[in-house]
Design a protein around this nucleic acid. Sequence first.
DNA 1: CGATAGTTTGACACAGCTCAATAGGCGTGG
DNA 2: CCACGCCTATTGAGCTGTGTCAAACTATCG
Lengths: 235, 235
Amino acid sequence: MTVRQDVHSAGIPVLCQSCEARHRGVCGALDPDQLVGLAKISSKHTIEPGVELIGDAETVDSYSNVLSGVVKLTKSLSDGRQQIVGLQFAPDFLGRPFKVESAINAEAATAVSLCSFPRASIERMMRESPELEHRLLKQTLNELDEARDWMVTLGRKTAAEKVASFLDPTLDPATNATSFELPLTRADIADFLGLTIETVSRQLTRLRTDGLIRIENNRHVTVTSLTRLAGRSGA
Amino acid sequence: MTVRQDVHSAGIPVLCQSCEARHRGVCGALDPDQLVGLAKISSKHTIEPGVELIGDAETVDSYSNVLSGVVKLTKSLSDGRQQIVGLQFAPDFLGRPFKVESAINAEAATAVSLCSFPRASIERMMRESPELEHRLLKQTLNELDEARDWMVTLGRKTAAEKVASFLDPTLDPATNATSFELPLTRADIADFLGLTIETVSRQLTRLRTDGLIRIENNRHVTVTSLTRLAGRSGA
DNA sequence: CGATAGTTTGACACAGCTCAATAGGCGTGG
DNA sequence: CCACGCCTATTGAGCTGTGTCAAACTATCG
């Protein structure tokens, strides 16, 4: 059993001090000694939008925490049709434990910063620290819940409902902001919702002409009637 | 009924001796003492097809292992549109740890037998036995992989490809059987693939008239050309 | 042998896709 | 500051795959 030290930031690596993953992410499972060990072999990266992080059928030898930005997880059919199957934000853990080969692509949707560590060290730590596995289990269960909600959207909602559902949870309930930057291009939104770019665009302009949203600037959207938007999401 | 005791089954509850969950399922994480404790508070149930196991927005106070049969996990929109978001077989663990309220429905698709135990005991055991959490994490990761594959099917495949993909992995590669019973009705298949009953039926007859499958008996299907079927699944 | 639930088949409508053209945003260079 | 080009987004016209509605067929079981 490990004893957590309650003195704030005592003995905690500089790299980790202001890191979100230490509080809400998987690193919160580690005690200062483990953090120091991990920090020695970690490296921070910044990635440009559009850059591929993990390729399909590639062997993965490192895992990462997302520190900022948006990472999209995609899967493709042989003829190029693509589907986004997950979005990851800070402080999500990025990688598929217990599998050497990736079955999905990961790509930076925006500018992204990552904290990466070698595969082997994480797997060793998982064996040593049940709390780490516990956090991973919780994140995985949340991702599974999200994936299943999304399957309903993909399988059973109309284009109008899909687009409304996409905008609805994009809203950050904490800030109560009705104005925000879309982290995805129209093409990404289409791949997310199982639609074409054109259909996404048409549905957005429909929401605009119906007075539910304002499109300031392609990426920048303001929702003027949250309730009416929610009413169109198919519940 | 007498059960022969040997080294392997020494001290193992009768209830568990021939149970698949003890080998490949979560119970494999437990030592004989824990098994005895759990067996005392477990109960085996048999459930008729169509019976609801867990209702949406119900509080869940027990978890189960699937011992036989097929359980379908569904989600519904307010107007009744439904989507199957998961299928569970033996020896899958059924239930959503760390959440009191269920966001999905579980229903017996075939005759199902379950081994159920109270919520509290499992959660206590999870705290005591990291191996149990480890197995749960692995099952959850597999379910997430499946869900994501499925999202590609729901979002990007045509009706023909959806039906072909449904039949394809239904084949048990172990037995190399090309003849099998569908565990789902046409309505279930439609809810699984995000289609209507009619479209599913039309695509099946198309596969039949094209000579890829034989439909013996509604539920009983024989695949005559596995390669041609795979070729239509959209890869 | 009739009743009932599940399945197939048909005719038609429409949502969303395809292809094509236009418009807007933004950086670069004159 | 404007002109140009590039990339992304919008808009339009037409087509097609899949949904809708309705009817006929089939299996299963009392």
